[in-house]
């Protein structure tokens, strides 16, 4: 049975369709990455699935429970860390986690046990300080810990590492992996970071303008682009470049996007030299020629025609 299932889920705000007839299904113990640029509809999707926002149309279930008909039981199953760490700066970390535990019906002993279990995620030296004194990373980790206090079946993380420094990101990544590996927790993760989706997700759904434009395991999605990509930036005419490259046997496909031309090839190392020679012979001035393996950005570029312009941390 799918732990998360959405069918034709749609949300409109006036004339703007933030989420447009999205179908997804997430298996138990899966990490599902919802990747897309700012404003693509990721947060709206999360807010609908975790019962904060009513869909305009469509249905969704969490562990078989309809989000509209059974919002209360759904809330018992889910843990949610929203995009902006939703914390009260005038509470201490301990008070915040304890209040969260009480509202989820945990007894005092259970809350103490959970705090001990969550200690690796928390900065226990500052646990009795006011949240207002915490750094961004500490707030994020406290937010995550508060979302986990009741041992949810499904964890929703809306851009969990936005604003974190690299060590903070790694710590959160490691915790997500641990929760998934050791507890079998299902994780629905939204992100605008390609590497985050690539590193963590078993499957990725790429969303753009409210619609899922590609879905699958990251490796399969990247393979769909090709084995290797040679990226060419030139001030010359694009049609001339395309013409020069299309004639080469080593090039499988040529795609043009804005100022960038990508030559997809089965063997980048072998193709690089012929490509350089062909461009030179055609009299095309090249400003950049780079070989790399496909990324999720290439997938995004392929299906949307534009880059996933993420603000890298």
């Amino acid at each position: 049975m799918n732990l998360i299932r959405a069918s034709a889920l749609t949300r409109r705000f006036g004339d703007n369709t933030a989420v447009d007839s999205v179908d997804i299904s997430v298996e138990p113990a899966e990490i599902y990455g919802f990747l897309g640029p700012n404003g693509a509809g990721k947060s709206t999707m999360v807010r609908m699935l975790c019962t904060l926002l009513q869909p305009t149309s469509g249905t969704a279930t969490i562990d078989g429970l309809d989000i509209l008909k059974n919002p209360g039981p759904v809330r018992l199953k889910i843990g949610v860390a929203l995009q902006d760490a939703s914390l009260d700066p005038k509470m201490t970390g301990r008070e915040l986690v304890t209040t969260q535990g009480r509202l989820f019906g945990l007894r005092p002993g259970e809350i103490r046990r959970r705090i001990e279990e969550l200690a690796p995620l928390l900065d226990m030296t500052a646990f009795d300080d006011l949240v207002g004194t915490y750094s961004g990373g500490m707030r994020r980790r406290l937010d995550l810990a508060a979302s986990l206090v009741h041992n949810p079946t499904v964890l929703f993380l809306d851009e969990p590492t936005t604003g974190l420094d690299p060590p903070g990101r790694l710590l959160v990544w490691e915790e997500i992996r641990r929760l998934n590996r050791e507890l079998g927790m299902t994780v629905f993760l939204t992100t605008q970071y390609l590497d985050e989706a690539d590193e963590l997700a078993d499957r990725v759904g790429i969303i753009d303008h409210g619609r899922i434009v590609a879905e699958g395991p990251p490796s399969e999605l990247k393979r769909s682009v090709g084995n290797d990509v040679v990226v060419i930036r030139t001030n010359g005419r694009r049609d001339e470049v395309e013409a020069a490259l299309t004639e080469l046997d080593v090039v499988d496909r040529v795609d043009s996007f804005d100022h960038e031309i990508r030559a997809v090839t089965g063997n980048g190392a072998r193709a690089l030299s012929p490509i350089a020679v062909a461009l030179d012979q055609a009299g095309i001035a090249v400003s950049e020629l780079a070989l790399r393996t496909p990324t999720l950005d290439d997938v995004f570029l392929e299906v949307t025609g534009s880059h996933l312009e993420s603000e890298e941390p």
Binding site: C50, T51, L52, G72, R75, L76, I78, V80, L82, D84, A85, S86, L87, D88, P89, Q100, L103, F104, G105, A146
Partner: peptide, 15 residues
């Protein structure tokens, strides 16, 4: 609480 998002956190509980 509404502005900080903490109210949303409360709404995500079965309270």
């Amino acid at each position: 609480d509404i502005q900080d998002g903490y109210f949303d956190r409360l709404l995500l509980t079965p309270v």
